[in-house]
């Protein structure tokens, strides 16, 4: 079974890193297959940015995401820019402080989306004390909401990817993200 995932946000929020950690977790530690691709242009340095991950239990031929079944949005602008081709009944995981929910009611109803919220940026800033780990908080929420990768694989992949000396901080961010995710519809 193949799962197509898209993660979108501002350039600089760490959405790319988030995608790499998910794909690495799936392929190196869960023994599945994964491909990670990204928008690679000026938008990667500010403005709307995205990464896409395909996870599957069999070999992945077509490597790109056409109709995501999971969409993670860390900015309103990026959500609007990249959501059009989302699948019906897909999971939409948003940071409610960065996405205007009133403005996306229509697409949520049209596509019958399952909406999850995670105050990832606020939690990173206030609970963890470092805004920079918002992407890892969101990763925790992603694992909590979707289960596409195992908790153990996610943790190994984070430890493998973050700078030395920040392991505890990132583990805390991940755990917190798992806790704070809520389904709202």
């Amino acid at each position: 079974m193949r799962t197509d995932i898209r993660i979108a946000g501002f350039g600089g929020q760490g959405v790319l890193m988030c995608g790499i950690v998910i794909a690495k977790a799936a392929s190196l530690y869960d023994n599945n297959y994964a491909v990670q691709t990204q928008s690679y242009g000026p938008e990667a340095r500010g403005g709307a940015s995205r990464t896409e991950v395909v996870v599957s239990d069999e070999q992945i031929d077509y490597p790109k995401v056409e109709n995501p079944e999971i969409f993670v949005a860390m900015s309103h602008e990026a959500l609007l820019k990249y959501i059009d081709d989302i699948q019906e009944e897909a999971i939409l995981l948003i940071d409610p402080n960065l996405v205007y929910q009133d403005e996306i009611k229509e697409i949520i109803e049209d596509k019958k989306l399952q909406v999850y919220t995670s105050k990832a940026t606020e939690t990173a800033e206030e609970t963890i004390g470092k805004k920079i780990v918002a992407n890892i908080v969101m990763l925790g929420s992603f694992v909590g909401a979707t289960g596409v990768i195992s908790v153990e694989a996610a943790k190994k992949s984070i430890l493998d990817s973050v700078p030395q000396g920040t392991e505890d901080l990132n583990m805390k961010a991940f755990e917190e993200g798992m806790k704070i995710v809520e389904k709202i519809n």
Binding site: L28, A34, V35, Q36, T37, Q38, Y40, P63
Partner: peptide, 9 residues
């Protein structure tokens, strides 16, 4: 460009 920037195991 695609294969150059794509990540896989």
């Amino acid at each position: 460009e695609i294969v150059g920037h794509m990540r896989e195991k």
